[in-house]
Design a protein around this nucleic acid. Structure first.
Lengths: 141, 141
DNA sequence: AATATTTAAGATCTGAAATACCTAAATGAG
DNA sequence: CTCATTTAGGTATTTCAGATCTTAAATATT
C-alpha cells in the first residue's frame, strides 16, 4: 500500500497530540497520557512534544503533575502551523526532476503536484484546533 | 522546504525514463543514455530500469547495442502503471494514525488524504505515455 | 572460434533520516 | 531533605533510499 501523500509519523503525532490537548483545556497533560491515547510510542511522542515546546506551541512543566498544555487558544493555532513546525515550511512542488527536462510548464506531472500541495496547504491553514473538537469526544475502544 | 507530496526519486526517474523511451520508438536505448538525458545517476537509473524490465514494462537486451525498449505501445502504458510498479499499489489513505483515534469518518485530516490520493490516481491513470509526447521534444541545454 | 568489449543483472555497502533508548535535570510531594 | 514523577537532551539503533561493486550475458572483432 502506498500513498502519494507524505506526512511523517512525527508530524502526524504532533497534529493529533495538539488536538488532544485542545480537548483537555486548562489541564496539564503528561506526554505518557497523550501517547496512551494516541496508541503510539511514548519515546517518540515525547520527542515530538519536546519539539512543540521548543517552538512555543505548548508550554511544558516538569516534575509531578507536570506535562504539556496549549500556549494559545485553540482558535489561534492552525494545523498548518503545527505541520510546519515539524516538517518545515510547506512549499509547492514542481517537477521532481526539475531541469534539464520538464521545464517551462511542460512537465510530466502537469499541475498535479502544485495542485495537490496548494490544496493541502489550504486545508491545513483553514483549520484550527478549535475546528477539530469532537475528534476526541467518543470513548475509544 | 518540504512538500506534502511523496514520490521517490526512483519512481520519478521511472516515469521520466519511460516517457523518454516512448519518444525514441523502435530503438533500443542503453540506460547510460537515459541517465544522461535525465541528468541523473547512472547507477540509480540502471536499477530502476532493471525493475521496469523485471516487471515487464520494458524489455532489455545485454551486450553492445543493448539497452531497453518499451514492451507495449505508448497508448497502452499509463503513468499509474509505472508508478505502481515502483511504489506499490496506490491506495487511498485514511487517517495516518488509524485507530484508536480518528475513526469513523471523524478524522483530523477529513477528506484531504482520500481526496488527494483519488485525484492523483485519476491523473495518473488517465495519462498514457502517448499523451506525453512533446516533453522530450525541445532540445535541452 | 576465441577474446575483448559493451551492457544489463544482481548483490552488497553506505549514509541520512526517522525512531527508540537512556541518563540528567527540574519540580512538586511527603 | 529525600523521593517519585516528569520533561530535556544527547546518543544509539533501525530503516530505507540510493550508490558501489561484481557477475553474467550478448555482440563485435580478430
Amino acid at each position: 500500500m502506498s500513498s502519494i501523500v507524505k506526512i511523517s509519523e512525527a508530524a502526524s503525532m504532533a497534529l493529533h497530540a495538539m488536538v488532544f490537548l485542545a480537548s483537555e483545556p486548562d489541564r496539564v497533560v503528561p506526554s505518557k497520557e497523550v501517547a496512551a491515547r494516541l496508541g503510539r510510542s511514548e519515546a517518540h511522542l515525547s520527542k515530538v512534544m519536546q519539539r512543540l515546546a521548543r517552538e512555543g506551541l505548548v508550554s511544558s512543566t516538569r516534575g509531578p503533575k507536570g506535562g504539556f498544555i496549549l500556549k494559545k487558544g485553540p482558535r489561534d493555532i492552525s494545523l498548518l502551523e503545527i505541520f510546519e513546525v515539524m516538517e518545515g515550511p510547506l512549499e509547492e512542488t514542481n517537477c521532481l526532476l526539475g531541469r534539464p527536462i520538464c521545464r517551462g510548464g511542460n512537465c510530466i506531472f502537469g499541475d498535479l503536484l502544485r495542485g495537490v500541495d496548494r490544496q493541502a496547504k489550504e486545508y491545513l491553514s483553514k483549520r484550527s484546533l478549535w475546528d477539530l473538537q469532537g475528534v476526541f469526544k467518543g470513548k475509544d475502544k
